[in-house]
Design a protein around this nucleic acid. Structure first.
Lengths: 145, 145
DNA sequence: GCAAATTATATTGTGTATAATTAAATTGAG
DNA sequence: CTCAATTTAATTATACACAATATAATTTGC
């Protein structure tokens, strides 16, 4: 009984961890159609919104560091979706820009969120509650506007 | 405006994905003390509860497949925490058992959940709501008792 | 009772994640 | 001004994740 704190079913972290992976998995067939992985997809979301961003800022938006982003951005560059250039003002900064091809991917990508919504068995209100609670946990480190 | 569906801030999946990683990151210093990674920790949680389990069942409990579990279980075996033996009844089954050393790790591990709880800025009620919503999403594929 | 389908685990290849280290550029205290 | 401290990316090493494939053992239909 004194070990109940160590039961998997008593952990909050575990359904969070499992749920995250299950949902990313559900995205796969839709993202395959536009040739992106889930992480590449959320990186492109930031690019569609900001057009230009340096690696540090992108990392803050996505809660990812350069160890993850550097190879990922090189792949997006190789796919012709983004450009990678040193800032002229401060050459330590690597500026990521979106290409025309990257912009045009927005059109087919637009259908992904609606396709996913139909996979969720939650009501609008439940989605809203869940969203608020997750951001409450994240907000301590919140940086991206 | 018609592209608002593609804004990162309008996605439910993203805070779930980011939150999951942020929380696993918070576990790290506590788990380092007992020499486990997060995935190894939740695998040991199942072992502390069940004592004996085959790989398939463990995978169903954790929503992980053999590609993740095989190398992980070999590391836990190398650390002397679990045993790996083919079932006599059905040699396709690999039975994982907990060792005495694995059992004794339960004692220091017991302090991890309380240490983590103090890292969360949610009320008991919020934790409970979040827990229910996450399991509602997961329940479609729920297998582990 | 035996070939075909099914089941369970392992292997391989690709893609994240993160910590730690390195290297280069800028800033700021004296 | 100048050099040490700081900042920013890239690199490296380790550890997951998962899809796809392979392998081996058991069931089952006939």
């Amino acid at each position: 009984m004194e070990y109940d704190v160590l039961k998997l079913s008593n952990q909050l972290c575990f359904p969070l961890y499992a749920c995250s992976r299950e949902i990313v998995k559900k995205y796969k067939p839709f993202l395959d159609e536009i040739g992106l992985t889930y992480t590449q997809y959320i990186a492109m979301m930031v690019m569609w919104e900001k057009k230009t961003v340096n690696v540090k800022t992108l990392g803050e938006c996505l809660y990812l560091d350069s160890g993850t982003l550097t190879p990922l951005l090189k792949k997006l560059e190789a796919a012709g979706l983004v450009t990678r250039e040193r800032s002229e003002k401060d050459e330590r900064n690597l500026v990521i820009g979106i290409t025309e091809k990257g912009e045009s991917l927005k059109e087919p990508a637009k259908t992904v969120p609606e396709k996913m919504a139909s996979c969720m068995n939650l009501s609008m209100e439940e989605v809203s509650t869940l969203y608020s609670l997750l951001y409450k946990i994240l907000k301590a480190d919140e940086v991206c506007e």
